[in-house]
Design a protein around this nucleic acid. Structure first.
Length: 542
DNA sequence: CTCAAAAGCGCG
DNA sequence: AAAGCGCGCTTTTGAG
C-alpha cells in the first residue's frame, strides 16, 4: 500500500492511515489500472477518500479492503465505470452496486469526457496524463504493466482522487433524471454485450461468395473501360471524357461523385450504373460480411459494445450493430428454439416534437391515431411524399433549400409549402423559434430530462457555421428526448433477453412462448410500440 | 513507405 | 455541395 496526500506519496504509511480508510463511509473515488487496454487483467487499484487523499494497492495486496467496494452502502465514483466495474465483477465474481460515473455525468452536461480536461475546466488538480507514462498515441506505446510502479501508483491514485473531486463538483450541476437514466442503463447494456447476437455463419458465407463474385464482375467490366470503380477520381475522369459536366467540391476542389450525383446527373450513363452496383456490393462485402466473418465473430455470436457518448444522448456501438444493411439482416438469428422479436417505437421523433412544442394540430393527429404523414398531406394539400419530406426537414432543422435538395421541390414551391406547414403547425414554429432564441442566449440546448449539449458556433461570425449549429440545436432536443424514451424502454425490459438496440428499436432473442410486456408510461405522452416476430432479424421486421 | 484526412455509404 | 440530424467503418488520396 502507498498513500497519497497533498504533498505526494507516503511509502510506509502508518497503520492508522489504513484505519482512516476502513472507517470512511463517504463517497469513494476508485480507479483500476490493467495490464493494457487490450489485456484487461487488473494490476492495481486506488481508493480516494477526498480530492487529496488516496490509497494505492497492488491488486494482490492482502491489505486491499475489497469489502469497501462490494458494500452497497458506500457510493463508488468511477471515471468510465463500465470499464472498471466489468473488471471488478469479473475478478470478484459478484455485482458492484451503488456507483456513479463521472464520464456519464460529463456527457450529460456536454463537457469533454477526458478526466484531465474535466479537472482543468473545474479548476481541480490535474491528474497525470496517460501519454506521459506510456508514450504518445501513434508512437510505440508501453503497456501499463511496463510503467514503473511508482509512476503507475501516482497515476492510479491521482485518477481516483480526480474522479471523486470531479463528482463532488458535478453532483450539484447535473440533471439527475438524465443522469440516473444512463446509470440505470449501464448494467442493462453490460448484460446485452455479454449475451451477444447470434449469427447464421453459413448464410454469411453464402453472402460472401455471391458478393465476391459480383464485385469481381463489376470490377472486370470497369477495367475494360480503363478505370477502378472504387476511385472517385477515376470515375470522374471517365465520365468527364464521355462528355459529362463534373461538379467539384468548393473546399477541396475534388469531383463530387456520390450516390446523389450518380443517380441524378449521370443517371443515363451505364458507367454510373456500373459504379453504383459496384459500390453497393463492395460495401456489403467489405464493411459488413467480411468484417463480421474475419473480425467480430466469437463462436457464432458478435458482442457489440454500447457507447453512451453520442452528443445527443443516443447509443452508438462498436462494432457497429446499428447500420447492418437490410439486405443481409437475415444473418442475425435467434438461439436454438427461440424466435427474433423486434420492437419499434412508432414515429417517436415526431411524437417528441408534438410534445415539446405542444402543437395542438400535431398532438391531435397522434391522438386520433392517424398516419402523421398522411394527415399532414391532407391538411397541407400535398402528396404524402412531400408531407414526409416536410416533417423530416423539421426534425433536422431544414428549410426550403433542404426541400429542394432532398425532395426535389423547387425553391419557390418549397417556401410556399413551409409557410403552409407553419400556418398549420403554429406551435412547432413557435418552438423552433424559442429553441433558437434559447441556444443563442444560453449557448446550449436541452432534452426532456435535461441533457445538455453546447453549441458555441451559434455565435460564429460565419453564416454557415452559425446555421449549422442552429440546425443541430433544433435536432438535439428531438433526437435526445427520443433516445431517453428508448433508454427507458430498454431498462423496463432488462430482465428479458435483449440482444440489440437500434435507436428506436429493441431486439430480442426469446423463447417462442415468452410474452414480453410492453412498458407503459415511458413518456408524458403515448409511445405505441410496433412488434414483429420472425426466424431472423429481417424476417421479424417485415 | 506511413499516416491522417477526406470521400463515401450503411443504418435510424 | 459550405445548405437535414446522429453515428462507425472502409478505401482512396495526397503529403511527408
Amino acid at each position: 500500500m502507498i498513500t497519497f496526500g497533498y504533498y505526494g506519496p507516503t511509502l510506509n504509511p502508518s497503520p492508522d492511515m489504513l484505519l482512516k480508510l476502513l472507517d470512511y463511509r463517504g463517497d469513494l473515488g476508485i480507479d483500476i489500472e490493467t495490464v493494457s487496454l487490450v489485456d484487461r487483467t487488473p494490476i492495481c487499484l486506488a481508493m480516494a477518500i477526498s480530492p487529496r487523499e488516496a490509497f494505492y494497492f497492488p491488486i494482490d495486496s492482502p491489505m486491499l479492503p475489497w469489502q469497501k467496494l462490494l458494500d452497497p452502502g458506500i457510493r463508488k465514483v468511477f471515471h468510465n465505470a463500465s470499464f472498471d466495474v466489468t473488471i471488478l465483477e469479473r475478478s470478484k465474481g459478484t455485482r458492484v452496486e451503488n456507483y456513479v460515473d463521472t464520464i456519464v455525468a460529463a456527457h450529460i452536461l456536454g463537457l469533454p469526457p477526458k478526466l484531465t480536461m474535466l479537472a482543468e475546466i473545474l479548476s481541480l488538480p490535474i491528474p497525470p496524463n496517460i501519454e506521459d507514462l506510456i508514450g504518445q498515441r501513434g508512437q510505440k506505446q508501453l503497456r501499463m504493466v511496463d510503467v514503473p510502479e511508482e509512476n503507475r501508483a501516482e497515476k492510479c491514485a491521482r485518477d481516483a482522487e480526480a474522479a471523486l473531486a470531479v463528482w463532488e463538483k458535478l453532483e450539484d450541476l447535473i440533471p439527475m433524471e438524465a443522469f440516473n437514466l444512463d446509470m440505470a442503463l449501464l448494467p442493462v447494456l453490460g448484460e446485452m454485450e455479454q449475451r451477444g447476437i447470434r449469427v447464421d455463419v453459413l448464410k454469411l458465407e453464402e453472402h460472401k461468395q455471391r458478393l465476391t463474385k459480383e464485385v469481381g464482375f463489376y470490377k472486370q467490366i470497369a477495367k475494360g473501360y480503363g478505370f477502378n470503380p472504387g476511385s472517385s477520381m477515376q470515375v470522374a475522369y471517365v465520365l468527364g471524357s464521355r462528355g459529362h459536366p463534373i461538379k467539384y467540391k468548393r473546399s477541396t476542389g475534388k469531383p463530387i461523385m456520390d450516390e446523389e450525383m450518380l443517380t441524378t446527373m449521370y443517371r443515363d450513363d451505364p458507367i454510373a450504373q456500373l459504379v453504383l452496383l459496384y459500390r453497393r456490393s463492395r460495401v456489403l462485402l467489405s464493411t459488413f460480411v467480411e468484417a463480421i466473418l474475419n473480425k467480430h465473430l466469437v463462436g457464432d455470436r458478435i458482442h457489440p459494445h454500447f457507447n453512451l457518448w453520442p452528443r445527443s444522448g443516443r447509443l452508438s456501438t462498436t462494432p457497429n450493430s446499428q447500420n447492418i444493411p437490410v439486405a443481409i439482416r437475415n444473418i442475425y438469428i435467434p438461439s436454438d428454439g427461440n424466435e427474433f422479436e423486434v420492437w419499434d417505437l412508432e414515429q417517436i421523433e415526431l411524437r417528441v416534437v408534438a410534445y415539446l412544442s405542444q402543437d395542438s394540430a400535431m398532438l391531435q393527429m397522434f391522438a386520433n391515431g392517424e398516419d402523421v404523414h398522411e394527415a399532414t398531406a391532407r391538411d397541407l394539400n400535398v402528396d404524402r411524399g412531400t408531407a414526409k419530406t416536410l416533417n423530416y426537414a423539421i426534425l433536422y432543422g431544414g428549410d426550403a433549400h433542404t426541400l429542394f435538395v432532398r425532395g426535389g421541390i423547387p425553391m419557390d414551391k418549397g417556401k410556399m409549402y413551409l409557410e403552409r406547414y407553419f400556418a398549420k403547425f403554429r406551435g412547432i414554429k413557435a418552438w423552433i423559434d424559442e429553441t433558437k432564441a434559447g441556444v443563442m442566449q444560453t449557448g446550449y440546448a436541452i432534452t426532456m430530462l435535461g441533457r445538455k449539449r453546447g453549441f458555441p458556433d451559434v455565435q460564429s461570425s460565419n453564416y454557415f457555421k452559425r446555421e449549422k449549429a442552429l440546425r443541430e440545436a433544433i435536432n438535439h432536443p428531438i433526437q435526445g428526448t427520443a433516445a431517453e424514451i428508448q433508454k427507458r424502454s430498454a431498462i423496463a425490459v432488462a430482465s428479458y433477453p435483449l440482444v440489440n438496440i437500434v435507436h428506436d428499436e429493441n431486439d430480442f432473442d426469446k423463447p417462442v412462448g415468452m410474452d414480453i410486456p410492453i412498458p407503459l408510461n415511458l413518456a408524458p405522452f403515448e409511445t405505441p410500440v410496433e412488434i414483429g416476430r420472425g426466424k431472423n432479424w429481417k424476417d421479424a421486421k417485415s
